[in-house]
């Protein structure tokens, strides 16, 4: 019997395949394509205290082996999430994490406290790394003191699994991972998107209304893998790896680099069934290599 269960701190999830925030809606969008209950977990769209319209269109540009986005945390706010969305997703038999963002530490605290009351939400992913908002977001995640401040503050009001999503737009990501671990993060997820931009040479205009946006997709995978490996050397808490995972091989590479679980993001746009293929591909790999416990792969890169 093969074991696919992994532990994210005190939280056991049924397998290491999760979805990345902002790429999977709230789950129901994918009901026509897959059985969401088979996934280890899903991270739903970034949620803020107040309703946000997000940035102006255009907010997406295709780039070589990837894409830029500057959605800017469009969401209806935590009240609508709790009152209208949560009742329609709480039946899923998968670990639902809510990605939480804010412009101020107080907003993070208030939003996290609201979500702490929801029985069927075992964790939040603290988003201190969104590159597409003017205030807050990535500003919190690019320096140790501010990352510590927001993580510490949320830890006081949030009593379930606290995952902190890290920005790759920093000099030393391991330092920030360690800093949030030391103030109570149960896990870290990385990487959020890399700040990038695109210009249309014909029109001389930026491709995005915000000029800059977040780069994702296979183009970022080598950077993501390197950062997961670096963070794995520095922290004891589980790492949830992401960045350009398109298939099971990509996912296994992240596990080998030190991730306990993975999030599949942009690939959901190309193939809404990809998460199940990643899961089945991991099982096939384990069979082929005679591995009975997926945890054997975690940090299993050979010297």
């Amino acid at each position: 019997m093969m074991n696919l269960k992994v532990n994210i701190g005190n939280l056991e999830i049924k397998n290491p395949v999760m979805t990345a925030s902002g790429t999977f809606g709230y789950g129901p969008e994918f009901d026509p394509y897959i059985d969401i209950n088979r996934l280890g977990g899903i991270v739903v769209k970034g949620t803020t205290l107040h309703h946000r319209e997000g940035n102006a269109y255009p907010r997406m540009a295709e780039t070589p082996s990837g894409m830029l986005n500057s959605v800017g945390l469009q969401n209806k706010g935590v009240d609508v999430f709790c009152n209208e969305i949560y009742p329609e997703i709480k039946h899923y038999n998968t670990a639902i994490f809510v990605n939480v963002s804010g412009s101020t530490v107080e907003e993070y605290i208030e939003t996290a406290a609201r979500i702490n009351e929801l029985d069927h939400i075992p964790g939040i992913e603290l988003n201190i790394s969104c590159p597409n908002v003017k205030e807050g977001g990535m500003a919190f995640g690019t320096s140790c003191p501010s990352a510590v401040a927001v993580t510490h503050a949320v830890r006081q009001v949030y009593h379930k699994s606290l995952m902190v999503k890290l920005s790759p737009n920093v000099t030393n990501i391991a330092e920030i991972a360690k800093a949030v671990q030391d103030v109570g993060a149960d896990s870290v997820s990385l990487i959020n998107t890399l700040l990038g931009m695109a210009i249309n040479a014909e029109t001389r205009r930026p491709a995005l209304s915000t000029i800059t946006g977040g780069l994702s997709g296979p183009a970022v995978k080598p950077i993501a893998l390197r950062m997961v490996w670096q963070v794995a050397q520095a922290v004891k808490i589980p790492i949830i790896g992401m960045g350009g995972i398109m298939n099971a091989t990509d996912a296994i590479e992240f596990l080998l680099a030190g991730a306990t679980a993975v999030q599949v993001g942009t690939a959901n746009f190309i193939d809404p069934t990809v998460t199940i293929k990643v899961l089945e591909g991991i099982e096939a790999y384990m069979l082929r290599h005679g591995i009975s416990d997926v945890n054997e792969l975690v940090g299993g890169m050979r010297a």
Binding site: F24, E29, M60, N268
Partner: peptide, 9 residues
């Protein structure tokens, strides 16, 4: 991008 309401692009 997605065509199914998940990316909000």
């Amino acid at each position: 991008a997605c065509g199914i309401g998940s990316c909000l692009c």
